[in-house]
């Protein structure tokens, strides 16, 4: 059993998994990718000091979503893809632990951060992905509920 590894480098694992954005020191614009400079103000990041890592809040509001029913082979469908406004910083993510239909997903819904394993590689290292799940427990499908449903079927 190897160690865990995050799916992307802006996902920070440990006791309190969370996302971190790269924030421009000069103007406050936030990004998730490796930065050469700031696309908002143009500040150059030649030595890495132009940006600082900032932690995002664990809850947010779903501002846009789609339910993807048709995707590349290897991607399980349907799934919910969306944009979550986390305290003014938008995050692209899947909405998980929810029934993927328009009766159970709506813009404006409150969601919270969660992580899950996406598989082990040949050396036993587990990759950890992230998503957001409904805060409303009535909308949230928990592992227990899934297991119960499977047991009853």
């Amino acid at each position: 059993m190897g160690a865990d590894i995050p799916l992307v480098d802006y996902l920070v694992l440990g006791d309190d998994p969370h996302l971190e954005a790269n924030e421009c020191v000069a103007c406050g614009a936030r990004f998730f990718d490796r930065r050469n400079a700031c696309a908002s103000c143009g500040a150059i990041n030649s030595d890495g000091s132009g940006f600082k890592r900032v932690e995002l809040p664990a809850t947010g509001e779903l501002t846009a979503f789609t339910i993807v029913s048709f995707a590349a082979p290897g991607i399980d469908v349907p799934f919910v893809a969306g944009v979550v406004d986390c305290g003014g910083t938008s995050v692209r993510a899947n909405i998980v632990n929810v029934s993927p239909d328009p009766e159970h997903v709506a813009t404006g819904m409150q969601v919270s951060f969660t992580t899950f394993g996406i598989g082990e590689d040949s050396e036993g290292t587990e990759a950890i992905g992230f998503g957001y799940e409904p805060v409303d427990e009535e909308l949230r499908i928990t592992e227990d509920a899934t297991e119960k449903a499977e047991a009853n079927s």
């Binding site: 480098d9 998730f32 846009a64 979503f65 995707a71 893809a81 813009t107």
Partner: peptide, 25 residues
């Protein structure tokens, strides 16, 4: 993004119908 695996479908969607669906929503 320092991704260890493809992210389409794991972190949102890259398909155009899905991107523009979100824009309308």
């Amino acid at each position: 993004f320092g991704a260890v695996a493809p992210i389409d479908g794991r972190i949102g969607t890259e398909i155009m119908p899905g991107v523009f669906a979100q824009i309308g929503m």
